[in-house]
Design a protein around this nucleic acid. Sequence first.
DNA 1: CCCGACCTTAACGCAACCTTAAACCGCACC
DNA 2: GGTGCGGTTTAAGGTTGCGTTAAGGTCGGG
Lengths: 231, 231
Amino acid sequence: MAYRILVADDEAEIREVLRLYLEKEGYEVVEAADGTEAVRMIREEKIDLALLDIMMPGMDGYRVLRNVREENNLPVIMLSAKSSDSDKILGLDLGADDYITKPFVPLEAVARVKSNLRRFYALGAGESRSGQGAALQVGNLRLEPDSCLLYRNGERIELTSVEFRIMKLFMENPGRVFTKQQIFEAGWEEAYMVSDNNVMVCISKLRAKLEHEGKEYIRTIRGLGYRMEKE
Amino acid sequence: MAYRILVADDEAEIREVLRLYLEKEGYEVVEAADGTEAVRMIREEKIDLALLDIMMPGMDGYRVLRNVREENNLPVIMLSAKSSDSDKILGLDLGADDYITKPFVPLEAVARVKSNLRRFYALGAGESRSGQGAALQVGNLRLEPDSCLLYRNGERIELTSVEFRIMKLFMENPGRVFTKQQIFEAGWEEAYMVSDNNVMVCISKLRAKLEHEGKEYIRTIRGLGYRMEKE
DNA sequence: CCCGACCTTAACGCAACCTTAAACCGCACC
DNA sequence: GGTGCGGTTTAAGGTTGCGTTAAGGTCGGG
């Protein structure tokens, strides 16, 4: 589920550069050449973040921004040729989330897009709160989200990031069966699984790490998926 | 137990933007439209951090600040439209903990709120102000915030300012995994990371300084970030 | 007994990461 | 205003951990 970014600027070159860089980061990019088009796209397409140039023919960036704030709620980054403070104030007062002055370094723009998306959609195991570290306990296993570590009877087991996310899925829902598709989505944070062998290999590795006194922690449910034993 | 933040500004829009962003980060937000109201709220409600605009009708931000310092003890961040240094100095002299000049990017404000809260409430609730000199001890490492020095078994290790802030982040949360983005924010005190190579170089330098008898102090968690070993 | 689903292992390759060194930059000192 | 210094940034090449792939084995239901 890639984020969809709207780039609204009358200069085709700017749009092109931004598209290039944003797509390299895995975002989906749609373009608008003027304000009216931008408004239409925000209204009709599902846009996750908008980059709006202030100086556009027809409807300028401010008006688009106001329009957005009245109808939708999505992060907006303003682009401005002038770097005068008055521009900045006007934009931010109207509720822009960020501001980039032209000429800009593409990488900075990308960084800001990324940062705003992250904050706005508070996704990605939302850090910030130090109190997010409630450890998950199932049987004699304890998973610490903060440190990304698993303990079995206090004995520490190192996990890779994929393994960690899978264990998290299991331990948040002990006893529940998950399909390989679901496990893939959780572990790889991607929607489409090319081959389910990946998952099987990973489960195999996990079992090897968990293995202890012949106890079985992860059960196979033929034709369905896997389940972590409640006790 | 979410932190409660007071936003005092006469412009409703500014309050609105700040509220939006702060609430998204999980903070509780209360608003005040002028200085008198701000003082009353700080007195009556349990406030953990205050954002004070300097230019407010009635009682201005400075007077509120002075009042706060006489009666309460909580972190205060000043907001100012003018970016003249004299303002800054006046505010900081009066005991403000931080300073943001308008126009500001919401993300920056949030970042500062977060960092001030962390600094202030870091170790066991509020301790005394300026007394941030409580040394942090983890394993055989001791970090002295006052002198910016790190000791390993009493042996002194010099740190640069960036290195120091990173070690502080690590040692305030031993065992916890931090992403490069988070490490960047802590070490460089900026919101946008253009390249993560900086962080990697710095970690590398830190490891070289810490290296001792083959002990590993900072571990890499591929695809996630870094962690300082608890013991 | 057969076949499809699942397991396991090992080799591979690539992106993420490490390290070094040189360039750059701000700052203090002369 | 040079000049030297310490620290940060940039760049480039090397390394490696981990997910992928593939291939052969095992299990279990019909």
